[in-house]
Design a protein around this nucleic acid. Structure first.
Lengths: 196, 196
DNA sequence: CTACATGTGGCACTCAGTGTCACTTCAAGG
DNA sequence: CCTTGAAGTGACACTGAGTGCCACATGTAG
């Protein structure tokens, strides 16, 4: 069967749909691209698009939740000998270490997420699970409750450092993202008095 | 002229419209209230509503920008003898010190802003100017650039402490918000090694 | 009384997001 | 080979936010 009755160009995965959307956003801007446009380009209907994404805002995020799960696993697997700060440092750098082949796409994605107001706002909701993973780890390591003030404030600070790093990286594409992150995290660690 | 031709009940200020909206949100929930509902309750048209607010999401914020301006002024007026940390501490507590008569409304407003997902997301954009004011002050005091990493990370941490305080306060209405904030800020200050 | 600036309402339009239902695809089991 | 059921898809209609445009009212300065 050389030709399926279904259009073989039909895109039916979150990852691929995200790529198609990203391409259109690059061409026409985020606001300038309608869900209809993405659906058409992917060979599916508008209705079907919303079965893959809860909202247009989620397109640039792709499979983010999977990555957060990986971060959580990474942290849990840290040997007890490694300090909390060192563990977070390594896990966060690793979290943002994308293969060369994907770096362009990743930059483009982050450029949108950090500069389009609607997406900046929406990011808060997506980042919440990331911060939660960090906060849980800090709480577990320090033996305090996750509901305590400190884990959350610190996880916010880590998010801030990450975002600040991305902003530097987007302005200076030459430097390695992981290098910037490494520096930012080091700066952050020097801000904390007690060993976390 | 006992009766103006214009409906005297017509509401024509951001502050009052915000109050009308808040009341409806309390009754029917944020999602359960349409802009049309608010406009009707305020005696104006839907079109006019959008001349007061850029979006429905801005209703709970009311005149926030004015408050941020006041924060900025407060910080600038700080005598040079007061440390950066102490100045921020005082200014932030003051920023959140509402008169008794408005406390109920303020609690209701914050309850929405911290619990309705769309509003949580949108808050990021509104808080940005607050953080900017903090970051500018820190940068000025430490003689570094506002573009530097540290002012931003620290301002994020202050925001996190504020939000965490509000969450505590919303769960335990008995305690004073300013007291919770005071405690949270003290905790935060102990996290910083160098004098900011 | 006129002229001009500002505020308002009505209307039509775009687009995101949702509920419903009919249709297709495909795999499992007779 | 046929049936049955589950899962994915598309068409359609609808709600609601937000915008552009234009006509009308109000208020103020000359």
């Amino acid at each position: 069967m050389p030709e399926s009755p279904v259009d073989s160009r039909r895109v039916t995965s979150v990852a691929e749909l995200s790529r198609v959307g990203l391409e259109l956003f690059l061409q026409n801007g985020f606001e300038g691209t309608t869900v209809e446009d993405i659906a058409t380009a992917a060979g599916i209907s508008r209705r079907t698009f919303f079965r893959y994404f809860a909202s247009k805002n989620d397109v640039p995020w792709g499979d983010f939740d999977v990555l957060v799960d990986r971060l959580r696993t990474h942290l849990r697997a840290t040997p007890a000998g490694v300090s909390t700060i060192a563990a977070l440092h390594a896990a966060i750098v690793d979290f943002n270490d994308y293969p060369k082949a994907e770096q362009d796409r990743h930059r483009q994605r982050m450029d949108l997420l950090l500069n389009v107001p609607v997406l900046v706002a929406h990011s808060t909701l997506r980042y919440a699970s990331w911060r939660q993973a960090i906060a849980e780890f800090i709480a577990a390591r320090s033996g305090t409750s996750v509901a305590a003030l400190r884990p959350h404030v610190v996880s916010w600070a880590y998010q801030a450092a990450s975002i600040a790093s991305y902003e530097v990286w987007l302005r200076q594409p030459r430097v390695e993202l992981t290098a910037v992150l490494d520096e930012a995290l080091t700066t952050l660690e020097q801000e904390f008095r007690r060993p976390a």
